[in-house]
Design a protein around this nucleic acid. Structure first.
Length: 422
DNA sequence: TCTGGGGTCCTAGGACCC
DNA sequence: TCTGGGGTCCTAGGACCC
């Protein structure tokens, strides 16, 4: 048996923990630059605000006071997520952190006589009590079914945040009413095709198809999903964090950047951030890709460009100095004056553990010195805060972002801790 | 005016090898 | 004139996830 613990409207719930006055009211959390909606309270969903909808399309609701908006505050959400995971791990033999707001739990270690329905409700209740975050806990024989079970908890308050879906007749009843596009593993593309071409609308329509039909239509991934719906576990459980195979830092800028100096300062900072992530997981990379692009929404007026370039390193590296040199070189190469750049990014690829790096005979870089310098930099930045020390080429005043509706970092900044008057 | 950021896996096709 | 068979590796693109 598996459980999925899914935080309800997570970013909104994080904001509400410190703003209880917003309970029961429409709340939206915005993407970077206050661009579009990335989390919505149930009340905001009911007003018709869609996931990913640009803010300017529902600005009237904000101006009229119908909706409260927040800029995204990932320092806060990351910390709240860690607290939820900590609470979960008290009840779980093994936990897989799937995303910032979802964790799978392998219940194999639990006693055979455990009442899993009660267990799910208890876990949900404890998360709420300890963190303030409402969490839906669905238990089922496979991860895909557990996902569905957790959605049921959100739909039906009577479940009290937790339910166990395992009897075949219950599974059938649920699947017959579950929209096909909401199945984990069936995205927009497939569901549109299934509905349009084959008249399939529910999870049950997919369930009763032949395995071979699924295989030709969707390949191996689809077969896994189909088997999972049939109660055959086909998606592995990873209880330890896997090292990333690719690390990307990219941003859309609040205003278009037209100067090379400003653009390279931003990109240099993305590079520092990416390589710091790389070192944190004890890895090195063999190549780096830089991309820059003009505003994709202004196709007809002005000059447009999307360009990316990869640099290969003869020896895999985790040195910010070395990688940044390469990045600065290609950015100068790609930059064209007269263009307004709206977005840029740095991608580290071909990542491997640093202790498995094959050294080159003709290497002329003093890697020991680099790595001593990097670890000093990392420890200063860890202690004193991000970007306390960095490269001369990188931007000094952070990323140019709009965050007009930012909430305080209640749990990660000493100055932002709430005061209680009593 | 204003439109996010970060990942993974699978597959098909081409290059290349014997 | 006739023109095999099998394998691996790499890459780009497409699908998915949050």
């Amino acid at each position: 048996m598996y459980a999925l613990a899914d935080c309800n409207n997570f970013f909104v719930s994080c904001e509400r923990v410190f703003r209880p006055d917003l309970e029961g009211r429409p709340v939206v959390v915005l993407s970077n630059n206050d661009g579009c909606a990335i989390a919505r309270s149930n009340e905001a969903k009911r007003l018709g605000i869609r996931m990913g909808q640009p803010m300017f399309e529902f600005r009237h609701l904000i101006d009229s006071g119908s909706v409260t908006v927040f800029s995204s505050n990932f320092a806060l959400y990351g910390d709240m997520s860690r607290r939820v995971q900590q609470t979960l791990s008290r009840f779980a033999p093994a936990i897989e952190v799937y995303s910032i707001d979802e964790s799978f739990i392998d219940l194999t270690g639990l006693g055979a006589d455990t009442d899993l329905d009660l267990w799910a409700k208890t876990v949900s209740g404890e998360c709420r009590r300890c963190t303030g975050i409402p969490v839906s806990v669905g238990v089922a024989p496979t991860k895909t079914l557990a996902k569905i079970a957790s959605k049921l908890c959100k739909q039906y308050p009577a479940t009290k945040g937790g339910c166990w879906m395992h009897r075949p007749e219950d599974v059938e009843k649920v699947l017959r009413r579950f929209p096909i596009e909401d199945i984990w593993g069936i995205g927009r593309r497939y569901s549109r095709r299934f509905k349009g071409y084959f008249g399939m609308n529910t999870a049950w329509d997919f369930y009763i198809k032949d395995k071979s039909w699924v295989s030709t239509e969707m390949g191996i991934g689809g077969v896994r999903t189909w088997q999972e719906l049939h109660g055959i576990p086909s998606i592995s459980f990873e209880d330890s964090a896997q090292a990333k195979k690719q690390i990307m830092i990219s941003r859309t800028f609040a205003k278009e950047i037209t100067g090379l100096d400003e653009l390279s300062a931003q990109v240099s900072m993305f590079c520092s951030m990416a390589v710091e992530k790389l070192r944190r997981q004890g890895s090195s990379c063999s190549n780096v890709t830089v991309f820059i692009m003009t505003n994709r929404f202004h196709r007809d007026n002005g000059l447009t460009q999307f360009e990316s370039r990869m640099t290969q390193f003869p020896t895999a590296t985790d040195s910010t100095l070395e990688i940044n040199t390469a990045v600065m070189h290609v950015i100068r190469d790609m930059f064209r004056s007269g263009y307004g750049y709206k977005r840029a990014g740095v991608v580290l690829g071909d990542i491997l553990p640093s202790d498995k790096v094959q050294l080159s005979f003709f290497d002329n870089i003093d890697r020991d010195r680099h790595s001593r310098l990097m670890s000093v930099m990392d420890s200063i930045n860890r202690r004193e805060g991000r970007n306390t020390v960095g490269l001369a080429s990188q931007s000094l005043d952070g990323i140019k972002m709009n965050r007009e509706h930012l909430s305080p970092c209640y749990t990660t900044e000493w100055n932002d801790i709430i005061t209680v008057h009593c």
